[in-house]
Amino acid sequence: MAIKDSTDLIKHLAHTQSQDDIDYLLRERVIYCHLPADAAAADATNYILLEADENIELVSAKITCAAAVALDASDYATLDLNIEDGAAGGLTSIDSFTTAATTLAARVAKSWSGIAATDTLDAGEILVLEVTKTGSGVVITDCMVEVKFRYL
């Protein structure tokens, strides 16, 4: 039985007397982070997206910009999704893309497609979006980052 809403959730429990599916379903969360527009030639900027309060598995992440960010092979930004150990340690890259190879269309979500089931954060680790510029850079407009994760 596919669980689509709270009514289905109640029906499922009544029919199966099993909380396993329900517990699994309730472990998944989505957070949204607003990032303000930056300057074209800004240095590397790190945005903290979340700090894991328990061990979690990343499910997906995507960015949606308010205005388009044009493709440019010489003046571009790299958007790198990273894990930091929470003790001011280095960043470990999960996935990245550049505006040298990818146009960010206005109000159209762009996913980081390299997230795998092995991309986990231990309690205390931090998910960071690092934006770096090459050449004269490019303005990354106001945007929203959506991160979906599951408690382990």
Rank of each mutant, 00 (worst) to 15 (best):
M1S: 07
L81C: 03
V30L: 11
M1T: 01
D43T: 12
D95S: 13
A101K: 12
A101V: 13
A73G: 13
V139D: 04
A100W: 05
K4N: 06
E146N: 00
T64E: 10
D21F: 00
Y32Q: 14
L25N: 05
S111V: 04
A44K: 11
S18E: 15
F149A: 02
D8E: 06
R27G: 09
A109P: 10
E146V: 06
I10M: 11
L152S: 08
I126N: 01
A100Q: 14
G114D: 04
L127Q: 09
L9A: 08
Y47S: 07
I3K: 00
L26G: 08
A66L: 14
A68E: 15
T132W: 06
V145S: 02
T103N: 07
I94M: 04
N55R: 11
I48V: 15
A41Y: 05
V138P: 00
C33T: 15
A14E: 13
L91P: 02
D142T: 09
A52H: 03
E125Q: 15
L35C: 04
G135N: 04
T134L: 14
I83W: 01
D8Y: 00
A87S: 12
V59G: 00
A123C: 04
A100I: 05
A14I: 07
A88N: 15
D23Y: 07
L25G: 01
G90N: 13
L26I: 10
Q19R: 14
R29K: 14
S93R: 12
A37Y: 03
I94C: 03
G86L: 04
T98I: 05
A67T: 13
A70E: 08
D43E: 09
A61N: 06
D5Y: 00
K62C: 12
N82A: 03
V69I: 10
S96D: 11
T141W: 02
G137L: 04
A42F: 06
T134Q: 14
A42Q: 15
V139K: 09
Q17L: 11
A40G: 08
L81G: 02
F97T: 02
A73F: 07
S136K: 11
T103Q: 13
S113N: 15
H34Q: 13
A70S: 14
T132R: 10
A116T: 15
T99A: 03
L127G: 07
E84F: 02
L152C: 08
M1D: 01
I63A: 05
W112K: 05
T64N: 06
T118N: 10
A73I: 10
A52G: 05
D142G: 08
S96H: 11
L26K: 05
D122Y: 05
Y76I: 04
A44D: 12
A109Q: 06
R107D: 12
K133E: 07
L104Q: 02
V131T: 09
E130D: 07
E125T: 01
T45D: 06
S6W: 11
A42M: 06
K133S: 11
H15M: 09
L121W: 01
I31P: 05
L50A: 10
T118W: 02
A41P: 00
K110P: 01
A106E: 08
L121P: 02
C33H: 13
D53A: 10
G114E: 06
Y32F: 14
D122C: 03
L121K: 03
A70D: 11
T98Q: 12
D122S: 13
H15K: 12
K62D: 15
A116I: 08
